[in-house]
């Protein structure tokens, strides 16, 4: 499963993905591919289905129909062991989702200890390295409520990295943050992107999207209306809805 994929084989592919909430059709037949090392941003007006889309990828949200393949495994097959698939797909949430009863380092160590059955010393060493990487070595023993939003989100990123995922999914990672804290989180994400981490990011941070991501999908009313290199799409949007949307957020 961990073999390198050939250049043409996508790490993650989505075929005819549909998601309905009761009568409301949130995602309409989305088909796309994500390759190893790609950093793909997803943007679009609120209610366009961005979050639902990214949540379907690791099956936190159950798609209504369509198929999702990760590393050759069909995630949407009911027989697939999702717990195993999810070990390789990290997710970072808008509201951080840190476990409030555990310290920063315990948050990071929990899954490696319980899911991967790592030895405590091994998990701890790696967790310390990750904390250093996100610039929070001195906060190992702090509880989430003692940390600022930006610090909490950086711990959450470290927690995802602890499972050594092959792809990281970010669901609006900076939209719950005060403006002065957005930067520290984006810096961590940018450095991850530079190191070759495969990332799919739902975000409105135009500068991050333009500089750090290779490709951007514009989602409107559950459809991908634009899909292309970030700089091109942002500097010269072709679809009128993209222009309208960019006009509003820039």
């Amino acid at each position: 499963m961990t073999e390198q994929l050939s250049q043409n084989e996508p790490l993650l592919s989505v075929v005819d993905l549909v998601k309905n909430f009761d009568d409301l059709c949130v995602l309409k037949n989305i088909t796309n591919e994500f390759h190893e090392g790609e950093v793909v941003s997803i943007m679009g007006p609120s209610g366009s289905g961005k979050s639902t889309f990214i949540r379907c990828l690791n099956h936190i949200e159950e798609p209504t129909s369509g198929k999702i393949y990760f590393d050759g495994i069909e995630v949407t097959n009911p027989k697939t062991d999702l717990d195993t698939v999810r070990r390789d797909m990290g997710m970072v949430f808008q509201n951080f989702g840190l476990f409030p009863h555990l310290t920063a380092i315990e948050n990071i160590m929990l899954a490696p200890l319980k899911v991967k059955k790592q030895k405590k010393a091994e998990a701890r060493n790696f967790a310390l390295k990750l904390l250093e990487r996100v610039g929070l070595s001195d906060k190992a023993d702090s509880y989430p409520k003692q940390l600022s939003g930006g610090q909490q989100q950086r711990v959450a990123i470290a927690r995802s990295l602890a499972m050594k995922p092959r792809v990281l999914l970010f669901d609006e990672p900076t939209s719950a943050l005060d403006p002065e804290m957005v930067r520290e989180v984006l810096d961590v994400m940018t450095s991850l992107a530079q190191e070759g981490m495969t990332m799919i990011v739902v975000s409105h941070e135009i500068n991050f999207i333009r500089e750090a991501s290779s490709r951007v999908l514009v989602l409107v009313d559950g459809e991908v209306i634009e899909d292309g290199p970030s700089k091109e799409v942002i500097d010269n949007p072709s679809h009128p809805r993209t222009k309208e949307f960019l006009g509003k957020i820039l």
């Binding site: 690791n58 936190i60 999702l82 717990d83 195993t84 999810r86 070990r87 797909m89 990290g90 997710m91 949430f93 509201n95 989702g97 840190l98 476990f99 929990l110 899954a111 319980k114 899911v115 959450a156 927690r159 995802s160 499972m163 999914l169």
Partner: peptide
């Protein structure tokens, strides 16, 4: 308990029981 807690744990590969 906020549902994000469950989602965060499950997205790390933890089972329902864990």
């Amino acid at each position: 308990i906020n549902n994000t807690q469950t989602e965060a744990a499950r997205s790390l590969g933890m089972t329902k029981f864990q």
